[in-house]
Design a protein around this nucleic acid. Structure first.
Length: 352
DNA sequence: AAGCCGGGGAC
DNA sequence: GTCCCAGGCTT
């Protein structure tokens, strides 16, 4: 029943309009594929031989993070932890260090939990069904659908921020979706636009996503040179803009910034104790790494994991002009989230 | 449904 | 300065 037939039952989707929409879809798909030949980015993440695990890691890293920043970190991770089993036995501290400055470090911990969960499955492979994927830590509807389409070639719509915007413009005639998460109406429309085969759907999804990321961008879409302008309902309608009351997402002085500073401090301590640097003594008076002698130890994360005093963490978490409660609140939040652990009486470290 | 969670680059 | 980004989790 999934294949094109019905839909006439529900008033709006008559066979005629459905056929018209499919025809337009075909025009758009042709245009996008043509556009891709010239404009598609060559990303290691998209290579033919990338495993489901590699795609999973890349998609999680890409959540709220531009691809150019993801690529080098992803490549490094694939060298270090090419399988779920490899990541599953890695120390959380090491995972956080290798996450670097990608942002939202909780994603790194969830990815590790995800690797553990996959390793505990029979066979230890990345599950190839949508529901099982959604049950994994850090894997939501978007990431699960991306895996099902790009890796397993299931006939499934992928609704990320780029695809939602491109569909909204071309097929709905609006500048951008109104809601922050996909609505039922959006999913139904996206489903109705899917090509007939799973492989074609993967091409369709990737083309929409890439087009939205490069050409049909949120702020300055290149309508002047857009090969789909004549097909775009939004362009034809004169590009009506929607009023979006954006909640100012301030950065300076926020808990986020304070959290980031604390985690960065711990990351830096791990890195400086990594190999050559030994970090003398002058630059970080708060460190008590106890890196002993062991000059060339290849595994810096042993019993001597770097720690900081609670007061030093408080100091780093104290931002100019912030209220006095912020720093302790931030530290407690990091502990609650598992990004920090208590060590001994009055010291903090990255989780083991 | 709304709030929270990093960080950097484009503008 | 603001806005954006291959979202997900918690309440």
């Amino acid at each position: 029943m999934s294949s094109s037939s019905s839909g006439a039952v529900r008033g709006e989707t008559t066979p005629a309009s459905s056929a018209t929409r499919q025809a337009k879809r075909n025009e758009v798909l042709t245009g996008l594929v043509n556009w891709m030949k010239e404009n598609k980015r060559e990303l290691p993440m998209r290579a033919e031989d990338v495993t489901p695990w590699g795609t999973l890691v890349g998609e999680v890293m890409s959540q709220q993070t531009p691809m150019p920043r993801v690529q080098p970190i992803w490549s490094r991770w694939m060298q270090l932890w090419p399988t779920p089993a490899a990541l599953a036995v890695a120390p959380a501290s090491r995972v956080l260090v290798e996450w670097g400055r990608l942002g939202y470090p909780s994603r790194a911990l969830r990815l590790r939990e995800c690797a553990i969960a996959i390793s505990e499955r029979p066979g230890g492979q990345v599950p190839a069904d949508f529901e099982s994927l959604c049950s994994l830590p850090g894997i939501g509807p978007y990431t699960a659908s991306a895996l099902m389409s790009f890796q397993f070639h299931e006939r499934r719509a992928v609704l990320d921020t780029n695809i939602r915007r491109v569909i909204a413009r071309i097929f709905s005639g609006i500048e951008r979706p109104a809601s922050s998460s996909p609505t039922r109406v959006e999913r139904d429309l996206a489903d109705s636009l899917l090509p007939s085969s799973g492989v074609e759907c993967a091409t369709w999804n990737l083309a929409l996503m890439e087009f939205g990321a490069i050409a049909c961008t949120s702020k300055n879409p290149g309508c002047d040179t857009c090969p789909l302008a004549s097909e775009c309902a939004w362009f034809v309608a004169g590009r009506p803009m929607v009023e979006v009351k954006r909640k100012s997402q301030a950065w300076a002085g926020t808990d986020r910034q304070a959290r980031g500073r604390v985690v960065q401090l711990l990351r830096d301590l791990h890195v400086s104790g990594d190999s050559s640097v030994s970090s003398a003594s002058s630059d970080s008076p708060v460190a008590s790494g106890d890196s002993s002698a062991t000059g060339n130890v290849p595994s810096p994360i042993d019993e001597a994991a770097p720690t900081v005093s609670y007061s030093a963490a408080l100091e780093v978490a104290t931002l100019p002009g912030s209220d006095p409660d912020q720093a302790p609140r931030v530290i407690e939040g990091l502990l609650a989230d598992g990004l920090l652990v208590r060590v001994g009486e009055d010291r903090l470290a990255l989780p083991r």
